[in-house]
Design a protein around this nucleic acid. Structure first.
Length: 303
DNA sequence: AACCCCTACAACCGCGAGAGG
DNA sequence: TCCTCTCGCGGTTGTAGGGGT
């Protein structure tokens, strides 16, 4: 009997995608009580969702001023890359520097980026045994134009040791004597790799070549890597004497960029629920919010 | 047209921290 | 001081959509 009751309680909890009506209920709750008391939403029978689920939905999708559906800009990417190297996987903290972005956004962005890197590394290692193939797991990769133009990229000479940090998945490539100096006098590291295939991008502007074992071919020893000027400068500033970390400095003491200040959300919810008497319940929390805050809540979209 | 693969994103889960009883 | 409850965070999984073959 008791088992049946608990089963019934379990069945009451709804999971999966949110419906427009549920969003509406949640928004109304937040309008009335503020973004807190999540667990009361279920206890009041408003929604058959856990408090956790409600909070997540609000924070990640319904909160005003979110950049939903907006891809990360180059600036945002740079901020994420730099802050990740500084703070580690503290997504919530990193997200405070990016107005309109949630920790989930940042986490997903970073995760995609890491997967991309892992895949490229994997492909490159397997390609090493079949270097004649340009096929990239079901997709053909176009070979790129080669160039010796030092102003558009840096040349890649000898293959050197390339390591991947297991803890952070950061790829590190030692400097070598063949480091290049660009037209601004900035030192560009020799990645010790040679470009054969179409490069993939880190975010929108950082570009790295795939690796090749066909280094006997002198014609292949120099290749164009289309770094944007901005990215090249960024790369050049990573002036670690021993290692060059393509994805950002492993432990840099000074930031590479002028980082934005943490974005302060309107009245972050207190760590604990505030107990509210009936008299003050409605609207009292809304004092914490700008008057037009809810004007910017996206209209409920029907699925 | 069908299939496969990749990517981005939404949502869930587990755990730890902090506050109140 | 301990226990319980709630919240927040980070990791993971599931899935829809797009693009290539």
């Amino acid at each position: 009997m008791r088992k049946m009751e608990t089963n019934n309680k379990k069945e009451e909890i709804k999971k999966g995608p949110w419906k427009a009506e549920e969003d509406e209920v949640l928004i109304n709750h937040v309008k009335r009580y503020g973004p807190r008391d999540w667990s009361s939403i279920r206890s009041k029978g408003l929604l058959h969702r856990t408090g956790k689920s409600c909070r997540l939905r609000w924070v990640n999708k319904l909160r005003p001023n979110l950049k939903n559906g907006c891809k990360f800009s180059a600036d945002e990417e740079r901020v994420v890359i730099e802050l990740q190297s500084e703070f580690g996987n503290k997504w919530a903290r990193i997200a405070t520097y990016l107005p309109g972005r949630t920790d989930n956004d940042v986490k997903n962005f970073w995760s995609s980026r890491q997967k991309r890197l892992a895949r490229i590394l994997h492909n490159s290692s397997s390609d090493a045994s079949t270097s004649s193939s340009h096929r990239c797991k079901g997709k053909h990769v176009k070979p790129i134009r080669q160039s010796c133009n030092p102003t558009q990229g840096f040349s890649l000479v000898e293959e050197e040791d390339i390591t991947v940090s297991s803890s952070s998945s950061l790829m590190k490539v030692p400097y070598s004597s063949s480091d290049q100096v660009d037209d601004k006098g900035l030192r560009l590291p020799d990645l010790g790799i040679k470009l054969e295939h179409q490069p993939f991008t880190f975010g929108t502007d950082l570009v790295i070549a795939e690796f090749s074992d066909s280094h006997n071919d002198a014609a292949n020893q120099q290749a164009l890597i289309p770094f944007s000027p901005e990215s090249r400068e960024l790369l050049a500033r990573l002036d670690d004497p021993f290692y060059y970390d393509i994805l950002g400095p492993a432990d840099s003491s000074e930031p590479l960029f002028a980082l934005p200040q943490p974005f302060s959300e309107p009245s972050p919810a207190p760590r604990r629920c505030r107990h509210v008497s009936k008299d003050e319940e409605a609207d009292v929390f809304l004092d914490d919010f700008p008057a037009d805050m809810f004007d910017q809540v996206d209209p409920i979209r029907t699925p």
